[in-house]
Design a protein around this nucleic acid. Structure first.
Length: 471
DNA sequence: CAACTAATAT
DNA sequence: CATATTAGTT
């Protein structure tokens, strides 16, 4: 997740440009119009500060839900079409009145029209680090492919109505949002994916001679693919790409943690050019990390802020974040006086892509696995498509309850939540990723808006354009 | 000799 | 910094 302080304009751009991400907006000031904009543009939540435990929990739920959902939010589309519609009607001389109910649409359109190519998320960044091992470890996850294709899984945008200064966070974003994933080509090619530079250079240098450059090394980096390398395999290190690591993990798991020894692993990996030493080295690191991870697990105190700050190769990540890292969120939280949330709304979680019971490979690893991985072992017994009121803060339902709520949050942090609490909440969310999201507010449906429009004399509805960009 | 660990080198 | 290499041990 990404938290961003910025003006609404920028935030909206972000919203509009990152439809794959669940975005949560927060504000310390309630403003229906703004809220509606956010929603229309795809925010999954709009939270008023300060943050409360429940809101925090809610946020994490969104993260997890998003992690398991790969379909774009339909709401966004509908919002987009509304914008479209609005555009057209504006041409006809702004038929719409600037009423609370609809004015926001215009704003949305306006925002949308801004060329915003510049708005990119930088989330990817962290992912390369944090998400690295995690995604690699996902090999057992049925959704792996899906996920790896989505580096960014969630977004958290904070807006402060005070200063409308957009801080760099979003802007200097690094490129590619959903960025290039590794082409999953030939497996052998995996090793050399990242490079023609550092793929597999042999130690030849040192030992002077390496009798046959052996197809080995070359194939690692795809001799066929990379001629330059094939020539004089001069690669030095194995690039443990996620793909390669995946194979590694796969082998390890296949063998069993105790049987996983370099030679066997090497065997199972079936990666030409890879040496036992390479594997051993990697294994060593793997074990170390795992060990540490276990320790952290035992000492929850450290688990949170540290556990996710580093790539964790040993500890299978719980979810296919593949990019977004929890640490990102944490940093966000910790560096901003955790200002949290209040109103939340909407968003039927999409469980369609959730692993089905019995279909996940990791099911075969029994409870321990399932638990360790944090993957749901069963689906919610109740229809997931229904929204449930948030357990604690039913009063937060601003939209439906008409301002009955953004008053005083019940339990809110004056300061930032402490690690333990965060830890607890995240753990909870991890353990029960299938729990329904607290819902309440829903964006106006296309129907309702159309209805409203027709009331005002707008009857023609432009055909929906799949997408959101106005011509 | 394979495997492991820790330390150190690149 | 991630890997590789080396050294010492089992």
């Amino acid at each position: 997740m990404l938290m961003c302080k910025g003006n609404y304009g920028e935030s909206f751009k972000l919203l509009g440009s990152s439809k794959d991400l669940p975005i949560i907006m927060t504000s310390d000031v309630y403003c229906l119009t703004t809220m509606m904009k956010c929603i229309a543009l795809g925010a999954v939540e709009f939270l008023l500060k300060p943050l409360s435990e429940d809101k925090l929990r809610n946020i994490w739920q969104h993260v997890l839900h998003k992690a398991f959902s790969s379909t774009p939010k339909p709401e966004v589309d509908s919002a987009a079409s509304l914008m479209q519609l609005q555009l057209e009607s504006e041409d006809n001389n702004g038929v719409l009145k600037d009423t609370e109910g609809l004015s926001w649409i215009q704003d949305i359109v306006w925002e949308q029209e801004q060329p915003d190519g510049s708005v990119k998320s930088q989330l990817n960044q962290g992912s390369s680090l944090q998400g690295f091992w995690e995604s690699g470890d996902q090999m057992n996850c049925p959704m792996e492919t899906d996920c790896s294709d989505k580096h960014v899984q969630s977004n958290f945008v904070e807006t402060t109505s005070h200063d409308l200064v957009c801080e760099d966070t979003l802007q200097e974003g690094q490129p590619q949002l959903s960025g290039k994933v590794m082409d999953k080509e030939d497996e052998n090619f995996a090793v050399g994916l990242n490079a023609e530079s550092n793929v597999y250079q042999h130690l030849q240098n040192k030992y002077g001679v390496k009798s046959s450059p052996s197809a080995a090394e070359q194939s690692i980096q795809g001799s066929d693919v990379n001629p330059s390398a094939s020539s004089k395999a001069k690669k030095t290190k194995v690039d443990w790409s996620p793909e390669l690591h995946r194979k590694f993990i796969q082998a390890v798991e296949q063998l069993g943690i105790d049987r996983a020894i370099p030679s066997k692993i090497l065997e199972l990996m079936k990666v030409e050019g890879l040496t036992r030493h390479n594997v051993a080295s990697h294994l060593q690191k793997y074990r170390m990390q795992k060990k540490h991870a276990v320790h952290r697990e035992e000492n929850p105190r450290f688990s949170m802020l540290t556990n996710h700050l580093k790539p964790n190769m040993a500890y299978p990540s719980y979810y296919p974040y593949c990019g977004i890292s929890m640490s990102t969120v944490y940093r966000t939280w910790t560096q901003n006086n955790g200002q949290p949330a209040n109103v939340n709304m909407w968003g039927p979680p999409d469980y369609r892509h959730w692993p089905q019971p019995g279909t996940q490979p990791w099911n075969s690893y029994a409870g321990m696995q399932a638990d360790a991985w944090g993957c749901p072992v069963m689906l919610p017994s109740r229809a997931p498509y229904f929204s449930y009121p948030q357990q604690i803060s039913s009063s937060h339902n601003v939209y439906t309850a008409n301002k009955s709520c953004y008053g005083t949050p019940h339990s809110s942090f004056d300061l930032q939540p402490d690690e333990e609490l965060i830890d607890k909440i995240v753990t909870e969310a991890r353990r029960k990723p299938w729990s329904p999201l607290p819902l309440g507010l829903k964006p106006p449906s296309a129907e309702s808006v159309l209805k409203e429009l027709s009331k005002q004399g707008v009857s023609t509805v432009p055909p929906r354009i799949n997408g959101s960009k106005p011509p």
